[in-house]
């Protein structure tokens, strides 16, 4: 076959294309200041701040600033989000899926319901996809198969149905309310 004579030349060409990685020497770690809506100051390493897509694009637009105001974010959830991202940086440098999974699971199990719910808008605002995924799953796990009353208190929701309306809704799908998990 004629094609077989072509193939050796192809392979030699590809070997020449081996990439030359430019070895980045360790830069001095730059700190970035984040300011929460309740005026608390957080100093974080640049690498951690760059995990926040919102902060990253802020810097791309105005690179000269040194303090990033976060008007939608309060201190407590922000500190927890920073804690999470610091760990994720370590996993990025040193990938260990099992370890990462374990950390993520522990991160959410030790948080209160309120902490989880409060962190979600922060993770969303800062566009931290991994964290958002972990948090959404954690919330889903905590409310799945639970009673309606449990969900209301979980999110602090007031029931705005009249008693008759609620009774009608429950009658409609009576089977669904059997055998929910204990609160």
């Amino acid at each position: 076959m004629s094609s077989s004579t072509d193939s050796p030349t192809l392979t030699t060409e590809t070997t020449q294309l081996s990439p030359q990685p430019d070895t980045e020497t360790a830069k001095p770690t730059k700190k970035i200041t984040l300011k929460s809506s309740d005026n608390q100051i957080f100093e974080v390493e640049e690498s951690v701040a760059m995990e926040f897509a919102t902060v990253k694009s802020f810097f791309e637009d105005s690179p000269s600033t040194d303090t990033v105001p976060l008007p939608n974010v309060t201190a407590k959830p922000l500190s927890q989000v920073i804690e999470f991202c610091k760990e994720q940086i370590k996993f990025k440098a040193n990938p260990d899926e099992a370890q990462k999974k374990k950390y993520n699971a522990e991160f959410v199990t030790e948080k209160s319901d309120k902490d989880l719910v409060d962190m979600i808008p922060v993770a969303n605002y800062l566009e931290i996809k991994d964290l958002l995924d972990v948090l959404n799953q954690a919330v889903a796990d905590r409310i799945e198969n639970k009673s309606v009353e449990y969900v209301r208190s979980f999110f602090g929701i007031d029931n705005d149905f009249t008693a008759e309306e609620e009774a009608a809704l429950r009658r409609e799908h009576a089977w669904a309310y059997e055998g929910v998990d204990e609160d």
Binding site: N136, A140, I157, A176
Partner: peptide
């Protein structure tokens, strides 16, 4: 929460929970 997030959380639940949670609130 933004609607997409609420959707994302709800889409992870079993169908029975979805049916029940219709009467959480309007």
């Amino acid at each position: 929460l933004p609607r997409e997030i609420a959707h994302d959380i709800l889409s992870r639940l079993p169908i029975t929970s979805l049916v029940q949670f219709k009467c959480v609130c309007r």
